[in-house]
C-alpha cells in the first residue's frame, strides 16, 4: 500500500471550559489574555486518527495546518511531539474577523497550494465557537466528499472505512480519497508526547519566531531543515481578497451581551434537616413531586 498524505486541520483555542471569575473583566467582557491557549480538543482526536493511519500505512505523512496568530505555532510543535511530520502556520492580519466561511476559504486555498493530499482530517468543532462548520465548508470548497462525526478511520485497500457516531446510533461508511473527515470527541484520545520527538522538535520554530530569538541559531536550522515550521501569509496563497476576513464573512456580529442574570426572589435554605425536610414537604404538597 502506498503511503498517504494526510493533512490535519487544527486550531489553537482559548480554554473556554474553565472560565473562572478572573476571566471576566470588570465591564463584563471576557479577558482572553488570562485564558490558557490550548490545542482544540477534538482536533487532537483528529490528529490521533491521522497518526493511526500513519501507523497502519507505512510511508504516510501527517501535516498539521493551522490558521491563527504567531503563537499558534505552539500547537504545531505539540503535534510534532506526538508524531506529525511537519506543519504549516497560516497567519496574516488579512484573516482577522473571518467567520467560518472566510476561514474555510483561506484553509482551502492553502490546501490547494500544498497540492497533493489524500485525506483532510479535522476535529468536528472548536470549543470557542462550537459551530462544526469549517470541516464541511473546506470539503465543499475543495469539491471532495466529507464524512463527519467520525469515531474510527481505517484504510482498507483503496478505500477508507469510517465509523460515525450519531445521536441515535452508529453508522459505518466507505469512501474513496480524496476525502475530508471530521472527528468527534468520543473517538480515542490523542497519544501523549513522545520523548524522542520532543527532543527532536523542541527547537522547531517559524521564521517569525526565529527573528525574535536572542541567540543566533542559523547554523542549526540550516543543518536541520525539519526544525523550520513553514509560515504562510496571504501572499503565499492564491486568493480573492474579497473572500478574506471581514469582507469575506457573510455573518456579522450585531450584538454581544454579557451574561448578566436577573436575580429571582429565591428561598434561601441551609443544609439542616429542618430546611430540607420543609422543602421536600412543600414540593410534595404543591404536587411538584410525588
Amino acid at each position: 500500500m502506498k503511503g498517504l498524505k494526510v493533512i490535519v486541520l487544527a486550531k489553537q483555542v482559548p480554554d473556554t471550559r474553565n472560565v473562572g471569575k478572573d476571566a471576566m473583566k470588570a465591564d463584563g467582557t471576557v479577558n482572553r489574555a488570562v485564558l490558557p491557549a490550548i490545542f482544540n480538543p477534538e482536533d487532537l482526536n483528529a490528529l490521533e486518527q491521522a497518526l493511526r493511519i500513519k501507523d497502519q500505512v507505512p510511508g504516510t505523512t501527517v501535516t498539521i495546518l493551522t490558521m491563527g496568530p504567531g503563537r499558534a505555532a505552539e500547537i504545531i510543535r505539540e503535534g510534532l511531539y506526538r508524531g506529525a511530520d511537519d506543519g504549516i502556520l497560516l497567519t496574516d492580519r488579512a484573516f482577522a474577523g473571518s467567520d467560518t466561511l472566510a476561514t474555510s476559504y483561506a484553509l482551502a486555498q492553502t490546501i490547494k497550494k500544498i497540492g497533493e493530499y489524500d485525506i483532510i482530517i479535522a476535529g468536528r468543532q472548536a470549543i470557542d465557537g462550537d459551530t462544526a462548520q469549517v470541516g464541511p465548508q473546506v470539503a465543499q470548497k475543495l469539491n471532495i466528499p466529507q464524512v463527519t462525526y467520525a469515531e474510527e478511520v481505517t484504510i482498507e485497500g483503496e478505500k477508507v472505512k469510517i465509523v460515525r457516531r450519531l445521536e441515535n446510533g452508529v453508522e459505518t461508511v466507505v469512501a474513496k480519497s480524496p476525502l475530508a473527515i471530521t472527528v468527534t470527541s468520543s473517538a480515542p484520545e490523542c497519544r501523549s508526547r513522545n520523548a524522542k520527538l520532543l527532543m527532536k522538535y523542541k527547537h522547531a520554530r517559524t521564521v517569525s519566531e526565529l527573528q525574535n530569538e536572542t541567540q543566533d541559531y542559523t547554523h542549526l536550522y540550516n543543518d536541520r531543515p525539519y526544525l523550520t515550521i513553514q509560515e504562510y501569509t496571504v501572499n503565499d496563497i492564491e486568493v480573492d481578497n474579497e473572500q478574506l476576513g471581514l469582507s469575506g464573512s457573510p455573518t456579522k456580529v450585531k450584538k454581544i451581551e454579557n451574561v448578566v442574570l436577573q436575580a429571582k426572589d429565591a428561598k434561601k435554605l441551609s443544609t439542616s434537616d429542618e430546611d430540607i425536610s420543609e422543602l421536600m414537604k412543600e414540593l410534595v404538597e404543591s404536587h411538584v413531586i410525588g
Binding site: 429571582k264 428561598k267 441551609s270 443544609t271 430546611d275 430540607i276 425536610s277 421536600m280 414537604k281 410525588g290
Partner: peptide, 25 residues
C-alpha cells in the same frame, strides 16, 4: 439567580437528606 430555592451546601450532604425526607413526607 434563576433558582426558586437555593441550598448553600455540599451535594453529598444534601442529596441523601432529600431522599430521606421525601420518603418521610
Amino acid at each position: 439567580a434563576i433558582a426558586d430555592y437555593v441550598i448553600t451546601g455540599d451535594v453529598a450532604t444534601v442529596v441523601p437528606k432529600m431522599i430521606k425526607f421525601y420518603k418521610q413526607n
